[in-house]
Computed example of a mutant assay.
Amino acid sequence: MLERGFGAAGPVPRTGARLADVLVDSGPTHRAELARTLGLSRTRISSVVAELVGRGILTELDGAANDAIDGRAGPRVALSDRLGVVAGVQIITTHTSVVVQTVAGELLAERQQDRPLDPGTGEERFTIAGRLVEDCLAEVGSPPLAAVGVGAFGQIDPDTGVVSTRPNGLWWGVDLRELSRRTFAVPTVLQNNTRLEAMAEASWGAGKGLSPVLSIGLGRGLTANTVVDGIPMIGAHGGGGELGHTTIDIHGELCSCGGRGCLWMSASATAIVNRLRNTIGSDWEGIIGAAAEGNPAAIHAFLDAADVLGISIASLANIIDPAVIVVGGDMLRSTPRFLERIITQVHDHSPTAARQAQIVPATFGGTGRGGSLAAALLARRLAVSSLDLGG
């Protein structure tokens, strides 16, 4: 049976499922706030809450945090800890990061394993992720695992779970859905790793409370993900957010993606390494360190990249008109002048509306932790969606 919420334009999901979705995203919430958010009466909300509390799906929290809302005191409502736990996995070039949370969102344990600047194989990285999840579960008494969210390289076909893009050769053709099934043996949701970083910045980081958020990732790859009201724009084929393989020179050199004159060839970490290979060396951390210590050649390479990136970001800002542009990735560790140069170029090449966007560094940086938290959020949504919530 479908219900109409107050002011809704059409049928909406049943109240129990809608209520649970709010609790997944917002955490413990008063009944009055649930009623306002869902556009339903307090009587209706109280009836559904009572049913779900009785079935052990929700719980009522005691304590001083249960302040009055609209002059009416009452306990906050939360998802029950008895629903099990979920894991969030973020696989990036230099880290595998894992968090384990309750379905209600309480952080129980986390692990991270670093590696050289090398993506490795899908089998290798999923084996590492599986071991880290097992370690986290063992730390908290081995509770039942309800679902796992995984962030991984590449554009992931939403229908097949296969990495469907060839650029840079990262895991092209790898069946992530099958790897997830073999590794975790529970329901799994997949997402591109940079898109998860964008979700984290929009939900808890530099873009919190703002929309749209344009999240720029600058490193070995170049990405530009848009998050609107907490939801990342994925695209019809799972390919949204690709910045590096946009053309900036139609007569440029042939790129590994098959195109010509891609931004990636001029302004990525790979491009900077290639430029400085014969003068500073090919070690990426060494190049970042050289720039941070004032090496003129390294600084010049990063600022040249910042000029091109800033103009490209300005073009995106003209189209999207974001409230905030969050810039993250390894390249920001080179010199403070790098982000300053990007900001200058964005302002110089944007009309008045786009110039009003804040341009700020990412909160989570390149640690992978933000992505693992966002992956856990997707896993929590998946776990709740499998429940019979009635209402």
Rank of each mutant, 00 (worst) to 15 (best):
R31Y: 02
I311F: 10
P116I: 10
H237N: 13
A152D: 07
V150L: 00
D330T: 10
W264Y: 15
M1G: 13
M233N: 08
L263K: 03
R333C: 10
N225Q: 06
R333V: 06
R260E: 05
A383V: 09
R381E: 11
S215M: 02
S203W: 05
G244K: 11
G259W: 07
I57S: 07
N278A: 15
Q113P: 00
I57P: 10
G71V: 01
A383N: 09
G209C: 01
E51V: 11
S164P: 05
A64P: 13
R76L: 03
A129Q: 09
V273A: 04
M331P: 06
T93K: 09
A73G: 13
S80G: 01
A64N: 10
P187F: 03
L190R: 05
A224H: 01
G230E: 00
V162H: 01
S203Y: 02
G240F: 12
V273S: 02
V186S: 15
A292M: 11
L108Q: 08
P119T: 14
G241C: 03
G240R: 05
I57D: 07
V103L: 13
G281H: 05
A267V: 04
L83G: 08
S164L: 11
L179W: 01
V189T: 06
L214N: 06
P322L: 08
E253I: 03
R82C: 02
I311D: 07
A271Q: 10
L378P: 03
A362M: 12
D348W: 05
A35L: 02
V273T: 04
L263D: 06
A198F: 05
R341N: 12
L23R: 10
A290E: 03
R182G: 15
P361I: 08
I287W: 00
T270G: 14
A17P: 13
I342A: 06
I69R: 14
A317K: 12
N278R: 15
H251M: 10
R55E: 12
G27W: 00
P158Q: 05
N278C: 11
G16P: 13
P167V: 08
T102E: 12
G370Y: 05
S312Q: 08
A353P: 11
L145T: 04
D118H: 11
V140I: 15
A236K: 04
I250P: 08
K208W: 07
W264P: 11
A73S: 12
I92T: 15
S80Y: 04
V186A: 09
P116G: 05
A78E: 15
F6M: 15
C262Y: 00
V98N: 14
F338K: 09
A202Q: 01
L389W: 12
V174F: 07
D229I: 00
H95T: 14
S350Y: 12
A301Q: 04
D249M: 07
I325D: 00
A353Q: 11
L316A: 09
S180R: 00
F153A: 08
T183V: 09
D330M: 14
V48Q: 15
G161A: 01
I287A: 00
T165M: 08
G217F: 12
G71M: 01
A314N: 05
S266G: 02
I319W: 08
S334D: 14
D249P: 09
G261Q: 01
N278I: 09
L243C: 04
L61R: 13
T127I: 05
D388Y: 06
H251Q: 13
S372L: 10
E106D: 15
N274Q: 10
S372R: 12
F6C: 14
E60W: 06
P119D: 07
